[in-house]
Structures are given as C-alpha cells and as structure tokens.
Amino acid sequence: MDSTQLLKGVLDVAVLAVLNREDGYGYDVVRRLRAAGLEDVGDASVYGTLRRLYANGALTSYVVPSEGGPHRKYYGINEHGKSILDIQSKGWQDFARSMDRLLSNEPLPALNLPATAGHDTLEDKK
C-alpha cells in the first residue's frame, strides 16, 4: 500500500511527536522519522510541514550558525504545539483502534445511531 498517502494525513502529528522528544533541524527530523519506520517520508514534505507548523504558532525556531557550512534552522515545540500534539495523538489513537478493529476478524459493535427525522432507517422502525 502506498504509504505516502497515509503519511500526508499524519505528518503533522509525527513531526510534533519527534520535536516533543527533542529540538531538531530539518534533515534531523527527517532522519528521526525514517529511523522510526516512516522510510518513505519525503524531506521536502517534512520541511514544508515544519514551516507550516511554525507559521501556525506550534513551533519555535532558531538559527544555529556554523563556521564553514551553511546555517541550520532548528525547531522546537511550544505549549501550543504540545496541546495540538495531545489532541492529534488522541485522534490518531481512536482512528488506529477503529482501523485495527475493522481489519481484524472481531465482530463489529452494533451501531447505535440516534433517531433522525426524515431518515427512513431500520433503527427508526424499531
């Protein structure tokens, strides 16, 4: 299965989780994501995500100059970023649990939808 499509949906929370452990610069984040098993993550996607999270106020940023080489731009997570990470972590866990259940052979729990006017469903007739 093409994991790049899946990655797109979870890249924000993945990047936040990496930075929640330790500050990092662009390629460092890419490397840690790949080391964690997300081998197909594209570096440009990560850099763009870092920039967007920073623009949204979830990250702090600072430039570390180097003597002979180019400067590195480090990112760190801030309180706003941590709250986003909490919310998205819960969202992911719910999602993953649902997918796990769906893909397993466990019986699915009965649906218990509330009655809605105008909807002719089996539930309505009970």
């Binding site: 610069y25 662009g26 890419v30 920039r51 400067h71």
Partner: peptide, 8 residues
C-alpha cells in the same frame, strides 16, 4: 521556507 535548506 528555504532558510537552512542548504544545510539540510
């Protein structure tokens, strides 16, 4: 967007 791009 490109600050640090060379380093990366």
């Amino acid at each position: 967007l490109t600050e640090g791009l060379e380093a990366d």
